[in-house]
């Protein structure tokens, strides 16, 4: 149905002049020539490293496929920014000292799981291995955050009493979170057919408004992010990769 609006959009496209195209080739080529590409000169080393990584991964977690990537693809709802350039620092999340688990994480106004479920359009999945969450927060209509109190096997995240924090995000909404991963390795996993990323180190985490503008920042612990299809799930805890994968597998 090529209607008038679509026709108008095509007309607009034809009329838009984005200005002269700069000749970037010389600059790009000189940058390519500057530092000789070490890995191209030593393909055997790359192959050996890849083989070791794959063998280790296969040995440790037989049905988790893995690849280390420096160009990390986003998962709907979560932006992985590996660029050296990123937003200038934004205010840290305001901490609420109100005795709640979420206060130190800048979360306020907890709701019940049922209330959260009826407030959002996506399914709020909960890992059965953890039982019901201790606190639940709505992040607008874009995500629901659930917290579990620290306990044996689930040590508290720095500065909190929280053992596990799980965000369930609407993949259809503008991304709520951006991870700044410059210099931090992100590992691509496929968990039971679902794309996932494992970030094994602490990293800055930005909260974005609907236009993608950062509004808050805090330091996040190691995190697993899974594209679970109808939702994206982000699991932050002190768990090992396999521990986090186990929690993800029990999502229901």
């Amino acid at each position: 149905m090529a209607d008038a609006l679509e026709q108008a959009l095509r007309d607009l496209s034809a009329a838009i002049d984005t200005g002269p195209v700069p000749d970037v080739a010389p600059a790009v080529l000189s940058r390519l020539r500057e530092p000789p590409r070490v890995e191209r000169r030593r393909p055997w080393l790359r192959i050996a490293i890849a083989a070791v990584v794959l063998a280790l991964a296969a040995a440790l977690v037989p049905d988790v496929r893995t690849a280390v990537a420096d160009f990390v693809r986003d998962i709907p709802g979560v932006v992985f920014n590996t660029s050296e350039k990123h937003a200038p620092p934004v205010p840290s999340v305001p901490r609420h000292v109100d005795g709640s688990l979420g206060g130190p994480l800048g979360l306020a106004h907890p709701v019940t799981l049922e209330a959260a479920r009826s407030a959002v359009s996506f399914p709020v999945v909960v890992p059965q291995s953890l039982g019901p969450p201790d606190e639940v927060y709505l992040r607008g209509d874009r995500a629901v955050t659930m917290l579990w109190r620290a306990r044996s096997g689930f040590p508290a995240l720095t500065g909190t009493q929280v053992g596990v924090m799980i965000d369930v995000l609407d993949p259809e909404s503008a991304p709520l979170l951006e991870k700044l991963l410059y210099g931090v390795a992100a590992e691509r996993l496929v968990i039971d057919g679902h794309e996932a990323r494992w970030i094994a180190a602490r990293h800055p985490l930005l909260v974005l408004d609907a236009n993608g503008i950062p509004v808050e920042q805090r330091e996040a612990a190691q995190t697993l992010v899974i594209d679970a299809g109808r939702v994206t799930v982000r699991i932050e805890s002190d768990l090992s990769r396999d521990g986090a994968v186990g929690v993800a597998r029990s999502l229901h």
Partner: peptide, 10 residues
């Protein structure tokens, strides 16, 4: 997008 975000405004 990274650059645009770095500017923090549209």
């Amino acid at each position: 997008r990274n650059r645009r975000r770095a500017e923090r405004r549209r």
